[in-house]
Design a protein around this nucleic acid. Structure first.
Lengths: 221, 221
DNA sequence: AAACATTTGTCCGTATGTATA
DNA sequence: ATATACATACGGACAAATGTT
């Protein structure tokens, strides 16, 4: 019996890619905390690679806004201000709203069905209080729409902003609520009706509401 | 008489930065043409540095969408589709419109005066058919608004998208018209009235109009 | 099919500049 | 202020992978 070889054309996994993913993950989940100073030699040892792929990864993370580099001086994880979320969500809301509009004429039956089942999974996660799971499914939901919109510029910007949202979630600056479930359903309904303007408006509100909810949460404390 | 030393705290200029700026400029102005294969050793020789800063620059340019890297295979300048502009302008319009909204409560007399003089310079450039100059002043105009909006996420995304706009201009995919002058004036007036919704709408139209104009231009040929 | 040439990815040493005593 | 220690930026060599003859 022949060894079953991988028939999927698997993209070569470089050390840089591995390092980048790991470092980004660590910054997002808080393993590397805001403001922490990053020593490339140390990181290289931990990840079992040399300093080069580490340096390259850090530079990419800088463009994404996860680290801050002071040439010749130091490299550190970017801080999280109390209201980073106030800066982060408006542009994300605007781009997601635009995506919904652009997606309208490209929607198929299959896509709408996928949105429906995804929102059902989202509902279950929220109701059973699996908030991290809910966050990821919520991302999936919005990702479907962005993918259908089929705009490479939007795609890469949203991807980066979403990563920041995940980070804020881990730092307890994001809360997910039941209201999203119903809003998602409204969006699906409006998409069926091909009502781009309204779906865009609801999409925006869906994201901006999270700002208020965070501020309410703070005030309760 | 003592040698007049530079009192401005000039940020250290790294080889990577220099290389990055030069390469980006070359891609924007067409010196490096769409689809061209990039050999880092060759570029290193031309710029008089080693491969390291070149490679790092290319990776940053990849994130910005100016080059495409195929790990282990090749690196090349991204292509320009006939309708790249159709993908590029909608997200830029959305972010600029958002910027205008966010800027409203932060506007000062000085800022508005600056917008007015900038638009006057823009008008002169357009009327004397100095189109490249007009493009740069137009950028200044919008940059003022983005700066006042004071949102780091928007700032970096707009900066990158603007660079792509410049590139399309060099490849004759962008045209500037007199209509922008009057639209800018309208925006200034609405900002004085603190009318965020309307200024946002006009800002969007101002950018999206360029898509139609490009398509009209094509049809005339 | 195999050896070659080319190009890319990685490693590590060194020099330059920065912070601290 | 000077010297010391240290982190970073860059260079050049080696290794691995690609595609070419």
């Amino acid at each position: 019996m022949p060894v079953p070889t991988d028939h999927i054309k698997t993209k070569r996994k470089t050390a840089k890619e591995t390092a980048f993913n790991q470092l980004q993950q660590w910054i997002i989940d808080g393993t590397l905390y805001p403001g922490e100073k990053l020593n490339d030699l140390e990181l290289a040892k931990v990840l079992g690679v040399s300093r080069t792929p580490i340096r390259e990864s850090l530079q990419l993370l800088e463009v994404q806004g996860f680290v801050e580099m002071f040439p010749g001086k130091a490299t550190q994880v970017t801080g999280i201000e109390r209201d980073s979320i106030t800066d982060l969500l408006p542009p994300l809301a605007a781009l997601q709203a635009l995506s919904a509009e652009l997606a309208i004429p490209r929607l198929t039956e299959e896509t709408i069905a996928l949105l429906e089942t995804t929102n059902e999974r989202f509902a279950i996660a929220v109701q059973t209080r699996n908030y991290f799971s809910a966050l990821k499914i919520d991302e999936e939901f919005h990702q479907i729409i962005v993918d259908v919109a089929n705009n490479p510029y939007i795609l890469s910007m949203v991807e980066s902003l979403q990563a920041h949202v995940r980070r804020l979630f881990f730092h307890n600056s994001i809360v997910l609520t039941k209201e999203s479930i119903e809003e998602h359903n409204k969006m699906i309904q409006l998409m069926k009706e091909r009502n781009g303007l309204k779906v865009s408006a609801i999409m925006r509100d869906n994201w901006l509401r999270a700002i208020d909810e965070f501020h309410n949460l703070k005030d309760e404390k």
